[in-house]
Design a protein around this nucleic acid. Sequence first.
DNA 1: TCTTGACTTAGAGTGCGCTCTAAGATGTAT
DNA 2: ATACATCTTAGAGCGCACTCTAAGTCAAGA
Lengths: 134, 134
Amino acid sequence: MIAAKEAGLTIQEVAEMTGLTAHTLRYYEKIGLLESIDRHGNGHRRYDEADLGWIHFLKLLRGTGMPIQQMQQFMELARQGDDSIADRVDLLQEHRQELFTRISELQEHLAHLDHKIAYYQGILTGIPADPCDS
Amino acid sequence: MIAAKEAGLTIQEVAEMTGLTAHTLRYYEKIGLLESIDRHGNGHRRYDEADLGWIHFLKLLRGTGMPIQQMQQFMELARQGDDSIADRVDLLQEHRQELFTRISELQEHLAHLDHKIAYYQGILTGIPADPCDS
DNA sequence: TCTTGACTTAGAGTGCGCTCTAAGATGTAT
DNA sequence: ATACATCTTAGAGCGCACTCTAAGTCAAGA
């Protein structure tokens, strides 16, 4: 490594920084979630700060359970420039609503699960259990 | 349908009551999530109240994102009788913890997403946006 | 008797989101 | 020169949780 570090991060560096694998980074690029990443002279990818920003955003969307298809739609809009911002907001807000609903459902399930656990614990400790076991 | 209704529900009835498909009910039985369901004279399944209770419980577990494998473990314990209750509680409590963590993560993601949406809306309405776009 | 419809089985197929393989190019260190 | 590490590509494979198909049985109704 005599040559000065050329601008940009290698795929491995980005993988380590983001927690995605290099495989996944290439996959995301192939299916259009990332624009073609700049290449170093030898054809190797070099990621810049903007790329990193998009990758973090994609991670957020996936983390919220957005399907890849919807993410592709979003990135297609993003590629169309600032005129698409309203559409992008719509898409995000729809997803936000779904996420909110899902969280609520999970909270209900959690309460239900706690109820079940308490029921089984009641049996264990010999305390007469609530006959309603639902 | 002259014969008096024999005890128990048909697979279709249970499907409608639970929101699972008949396919899924057979699948759950095949992989050991349900004990062998009683059969009517002609070999058709007949579900009783207890079966229904287990199915609702399985739906709860799946609804909380428990993997099928773990559900199989749980049902294996259940088949071993009351001596396994402590182990079942352990399993459920571990899962409860994971569920709780997942809900927390989703809530963080939701906040982050809201932040993003607000950022984009700021652009739309021409209000100078917070330069920190993360 | 014939048709219809609900059920049975074993096993194949599906959609999702990666994840990995194979073959090859390039660059660095000894 | 040689060994190695890291990257490239196209495309195959995987794990999960269903979901569906094909071929067959059975009972009720026209």
